[in-house]
């Protein structure tokens, strides 16, 4: 499960760009998460410039 800390997120979309499962989408002022698509690969966690993403079980 992808969990985004909104107090850290800069809405930059880096996580969206690297997600091979298209489980994230950048909207106007937030990032939408589709956890049913997430494969827990962790690319978004690594990519996030703000260190705002965690994978949770």
């Amino acid at each position: 499960m992808i969990e985004i800390d909104r107090t850290k997120c800069a809405y930059c979309g880096a996580c969206v760009g690297v997600c091979p499962a298209m489980a994230l989408r950048l909207r106007d002022i937030y990032v939408e998460v589709y956890n049913d698509k997430c494969t827990s690969c962790g690319a978004c966690v690594r990519a996030c410039p703000m260190n705002a993403i965690e994978l949770k079980k």
């Binding site: 979309g13 880096a14 760009g17 690319a43 690594r46």
Partner: peptide
């Protein structure tokens, strides 16, 4: 942009790999 989904939804692979990206 870098968070492109439109091309991917249409079938062109624009996925950015971690190795080939800067953040």
């Amino acid at each position: 942009g870098g968070e492109s989904l439109v091309a991917r939804m249409a079938g062109i692979n624009t996925l950015a790999t971690l190795y080939d990206s800067d953040f």
